[in-house]
């Protein structure tokens, strides 16, 4: 009976925080997107259990919470009663009184532990949702690395790459070039992605998809080495196009500007030579020139 009780307590104090944190994190990042190896899972379970537990122990000691329920003697009596049938028969009244005190102490620790875990997981959820803003707000390189070390391992790298987490600014959008194993090249915005429980990419859904006419391009290239690639893209009828992960050979992630002119010709980035080029051009627009 003592072994069963200890197993239950270990599950409640060690596995409970891990499961609870996974559930709360799953509210933001789908569980299927969480990708970790066994070592990372064990390390995370221990950290999730020990760090909040240390905080809880400090909390109840400062507030003298456990003393309201009982003391070490109650733990000894309850453990002895669970371990030995003869002790239980001889001290039945004391055993139940101590058992209630021990349950009360465990409850005092557990609800605080779970509250801290929920708060920490909610904070990480917020950091995942606001990752782009947080990363741009943090200027020192070490702070960016610390943020990435804390947050990103909880999320599949495909989710990181194919979501707006990494968009550096608001004026760019996420697009990909997808090369399939049969050599076809597709291009489009990332509308959605499906990620397996182990973090593997199952599929990408492209918005406003385009297909590259590779053979025509190569034929044109033989005649004209400067043949522009832009004329060999063809829109695929339909708004969404799904490419299965098993067909994908490589993915090129791009961040083209939403309004093409504005970021490329932003005032702070333009040199005096660039401005002179534009001034000269506009000067020739004037009547009589």
């Amino acid at each position: 009976m003592l072994a069963v009780s200890l197993t239950f307590l270990a599950a409640a104090f060690i596995l409970g925080p891990e499961l609870l944190s996974r559930w709360v994190l799953g509210l933001v990042v789908p569980q299927r997107s969480l990708s970790q190896n066994r070592g990372e899972q064990v390390t995370r379970a221990i950290v999730w259990a020990l760090v909040p537990l240390a905080v809880v122990v400090l909390w109840v000691r400062v507030r003298h919470v456990l003393g309201m329920w009982g003391g070490w003697l109650d733990v000894e009596v309850a453990a002895s009663g669970l371990y030995s049938g003869s002790y239980f028969d001889a001290h039945r009244v004391e055993f139940y009184r101590s058992l209630i005190a021990v349950c009360g102490m465990a409850w005092s620790l557990l609800w605080r532990l779970y509250l801290i875990v929920i708060a920490a997981a909610a904070l990480i959820d917020w950091a995942i949702l606001r990752y782009r803003w947080l990363r741009n707000a943090l200027k020192p390189r070490w702070a960016k690395t610390a943020l990435a070390t804390l947050i990103l391992p909880r999320v599949s790298e495909w989710y990181v790459l194919l979501s707006d987490m990494l968009l550096p600014t608001e004026d760019v959008m996420l697009e990909v070039d997808v090369l399939t194993k049969n050599g076809t090249l597709y291009q489009g915005g990332v509308q959605d992605r499906m990620i397996a429980p182990d973090g593997e990419l199952l599929s990408i859904t492209l918005a406003d998809p385009r297909r590259f006419l590779r053979e025509e391009f190569h034929r044109e290239k033989e005649e004209d080495v400067n043949a522009p690639t832009e004329y060999f893209w063809r829109h695929i009828p339909g708004k969404l196009f799904v490419v299965l992960g098993s067909d994908i050979a490589s993915v090129n992630v791009r961040y083209p500007p939403r309004q093409a002119a504005s970021p490329a010709l932003a005032r702070p980035d333009l040199s005096e030579t660039d401005l002179t080029t534009i001034r000269n051009l506009l000067a020739k627009l004037k009547p009589g020139e």
Partner: peptide, 20 residues
């Protein structure tokens, strides 16, 4: 891991700057 991804992010930042 996170450190490697952050390195990747830094490369992307540089790519965006050079792309512009």
């Amino acid at each position: 891991n996170g450190r490697e991804i952050e390195h990747l992010l830094s490369l992307m930042d540089e790519n965006i700057t050079s792309g512009r």
